[in-house]
Design a protein around this nucleic acid. Structure first.
Lengths: 240, 240
DNA sequence: CTCACTATACTGTATATACAACCTTATACA
DNA sequence: TGTATAAGGTTGTATATACAGTATAGTGAG
């Protein structure tokens, strides 16, 4: 990928890494712009940009004349946690199985170039897999993976480990994007999920970031009669 | 209002106003940094900041060597935030209207007793309202409200303030529960949302807690063709 | 006509500089 | 002691400048 990362992005990563590692906890003071200037031998405008963007992203809070501080961990929880469907099914005491329909390398289409925030077409890995609960299809997973982030993806045995579980074991998910739609299944989806054309489905599109890269982009199809998405969230504090 | 607004913010507002007014539509080219320099007699760094922040906010898309363009306005609802649909529609520069179909007191049914964690049947307030964007129905809201938490609910004028906005102004949301399903609309929903029986819809059921009570329980129906649910989440720390 | 090259425009980043506004602390003065 | 003032550090904004990378249009050679 991009080894020549911009300086301000390296400063952002440095501070984010300290937050994630626990070296900087909520309320901690982060280095001032002038201190960053000395530490990294950069100009104050570059330090300013790094801190300003981290503030816009919700990680920091700045007070003129005082300093910059780590914000309370945002009370936002993803509606859909990154849960492993195999574990989920096992936790209900049911039997999990899967059927892999496709597993190969392919070139990124224009849509995928957008999805992965690429500049030009590159090879991507693709997997299509049907997840089954007691032999009944409950989810169709259509996933693309960035080879840069998971070069050995194609060599994995996905009959014993789901793609989600494998990717999570490789890289921490730092950012998630979800898009949920209601759809009617097309012919292929009807066949895969053994449902009729009149049964609506949830289409959950998820992108996952790690280290500034889009690691994977997946579309998960759930038949409405067999699945719903659920979340319960406590909001520690009210955001302004 | 801040009368002494920074220059870059004025430039942002100027471009946003053009997008909202329709002078700039999706795909339109917005002035280049150098053109903004001439128009506003500012430095290129200031123009760059305005365009860069509008891009980060999702309004613009920039291509090095080519130009800056207005992005497709995707009507997306955050999955997790409690956003006001009227504000959301207004932020797209569209006209919000609503049609109230029901507003009255009623006795809790067994299902509602469960929903509100009650022990016996009690009076509840009910509102049924169709939200419209530029005259087109985009959401049907079927909401029950705990009179204990909002005793004056029935006296409000919900043509000028949505139920969500009113309840949020009364009480902070401390806990949220979401349940998302894909459904096919029944006859009533087809009529209300002006859709066909074969158009799938998202059904979002939300319960909101405050002060240990269930304040409100609402079912929101979105036609699939007009709405999708969206969320993007930064994970400061890794969740299990 | 085709291909390679060039000029141009645009975005992206980085720096040095400047000034304003804000807050805290130390100092001087009454 | 109490108060006003000054100093220094911090964020916030704005500018001028520079160079790199990318895409496109045009130009000229073959």
């Amino acid at each position: 990928m991009n080894l020549a990362q911009p300086i301000y992005a390296r400063v952002k990563d440095h501070i984010l890494a300290q937050i994630r590692s626990g070296a900087l906890v909520a309320g901690s003071r982060v280095p001032s712009e002038n201190e960053l200037v000395s530490q990294f031998s950069i100009s104050r405008m570059t330090a300013n940009r790094a801190l300003r963007e981290l503030t816009a992203d919700g990680f920091l809070s700045r007070v003129p004349g005082v300093g910059t501080f780590v914000r309370e961990a945002t009370p936002r929880t993803s509606l859909i946690e990154l849960r492993n469907i195999a574990d989920e099914i096992a936790s209900r005491g049911h039997h999990y199985s899967s059927r892999i329909e496709d597993l190969r390398e392919m070139m990124a289409t224009p849509n995928l170039i957008d999805d992965f925030e690429l500049r030009a077409t590159t090879p991507l890995y693709h997997i299509a897999i049907v997840h089954e609960e007691n032999g009944m299809p409950v989810q169709f997973e259509d996933r693309y993976v960035n080879p840069f982030c998971a070069p050995n993806f194609l060599k994995q045995d996905f009959s014993h480990q789901t793609p989600t579980a494998y990717l999570l074991s490789l890289l921490p998910a730092e950012e998630l994007e979800h898009n949920v739609e209601a759809i009617l299944p097309d012919a292929n989806q009807q066949r895969r999920l053994k449902i009729s054309s009149s049964e609506p489905c949830l289409s959950l599109h998820r992108r996952t970031w790690s280290g500034g890269h889009v690691v994977t982009s997946a579309t998960l199809i759930y038949p409405a009669s067999r699945y719903a998405l659920y979340s319960r969230t406590s909001l520690g504090k009210q955001t302004s």
